[in-house]
């Protein structure tokens, strides 16, 4: 690009370099800022990301620092600007698209599934493109500001899907996604964006978290919980209760990347604990639990001592009122209850 502006880095985007703790949202901002600084071909497209700094302020200060050619406020047309990002990626740029709320990604479904994810296979070359944005419920956002969209795209060969649960992973995974030559859908749970418990001091160095690798959140012997995103933290809460009240130790696997999935991490854990519980915030039917259970059936059926179970949201649109939404979403108690059932089976 021809127009990088020479200004010093804004303070709120360089906390890590001063040894200060960052939230998950700040970790994402830092990842974007560092990648844009290191690589002039990285640029941003999205609604209200420039002058306003993004609906969640992920890109606050970016327009002033990088200029209007690298931080592009777009019309309200997710298909239009996601498709344009694909065209720019053909020409060697590395666009990062922000979907203001991932619920709004549907107009881009066509170009993502038919064009972007098939590009390499059709002989049109790599597609270094990240589509990122907030997902998830618990914020009383109602049906159109709360959805998880992974399973609408999970059935799309050629696409990678990433869903971090910690600030460290969010930064490392986003940097890896931007450097990846494949299209990546990057989901950010808005309930984790500013969660005080997730603030952490990150290494003051250039690090990435490789895509396609799960993380063992804690080691256990009695039961495996496979999960990702915000449900990692609810599963940890449940594991604490199970440890304290039942003496059960739970192996918790955070998938981090949903597509392609780290089968080995899941299978290794199941072979150790012989019991599998899958926890996801997304709705139940067609949720990722079905695919995980099938893979375990194919690769570790003989090691299972109990049926594979799942804790998920109910099969409904995301409701608005708190009492409804709390019932809709999987809760810590659901995880505890299912784990006790499996342990006693």
């Amino acid at each position: 690009m021809t127009t990088t502006m020479e200004t010093s880095a804004p303070e709120h985007l360089t906390k890590t370099s001063r040894g200060e703790a960052v939230t998950l949202l700040e970790a994402i901002s830092e990842a974007l800022f560092e990648e844009m600084t290191a690589d002039e071909s990285v640029f941003l497209l999205g609604e209200d990301i420039g002058v306003y700094g993004g609906a969640f302020k992920v890109t606050r200060g970016f327009l002033e620092h990088f200029g209007a050619n690298r931080v592009i406020d777009t019309p309200i047309a997710e298909g239009g600007f996601t498709g344009a990002a694909a065209g720019a990626a053909h020409m060697g740029l590395r666009p990062v698209v922000e979907i203001q709320f991932m619920d709004f990604i549907s107009p881009a479904y066509d170009v993502i599934t038919n064009y972007i994810a098939t590009s390499l296979y059709r002989g049109a070359g790599p597609m270094p493109l990240v589509i990122r944005g907030p997902v998830g419920g618990g914020n009383r956002g109602g049906p159109f500001h709360s959805q998880n969209v992974e399973m609408a795209f999970f059935h799309t060969p050629g696409l990678k899907i990433v869903y971090p649960s910690t600030a460290y992973d969010a930064k490392g995974l986003l940097k890896a996604a931007i450097r990846d030559d494949n299209p990546v859908l990057f989901e950010e749970h808005k309930g984790l964006y500013r969660a005080p418990a997730l603030r952490e001091v990150l290494p003051d160095e250039d690090f990435v978290v490789p895509l396609g690798k799960a993380r063992t959140v804690r080691e256990g012997q009695d039961l495996t919980v496979v999960t990702y995103g915000a449900m990692v933290h609810k599963s940890v809460e449940a594991a604490d209760i199970l440890d304290a009240e039942d003496g059960l130790s739970v192996d918790i696997i955070d998938l981090r990347t949903l597509l392609p999935m780290d089968d080995d991490a899941i299978v290794d854990s199941v072979k150790k604990t012989n019991r599998l519980l899958i926890v996801h915030e997304d709705t139940r039917t067609g949720g990722i639990a079905g695919e995980i259970a099938m893979r375990v059936s194919e690769k570790a059926f003989e090691w299972l001592d109990a049926p594979m179970l799942r804790v998920t949201a109910i099969d409904a649109p995301v409701p608005y009122s708190g009492s409804l939404e709390d019932y809709f979403l999987p809760q810590v108690d659901d995880v505890v209850k299912a784990a006790r059932y499996l342990a006693a089976y």
Partner: peptide, 14 residues
């Protein structure tokens, strides 16, 4: 149309 918009956007940006 979307794809060509992006291809030609890159021409303008560069």
């Amino acid at each position: 149309i979307e794809i060509m918009a992006g291809i030609t956007l890159s021409f303008r940006l560069r």
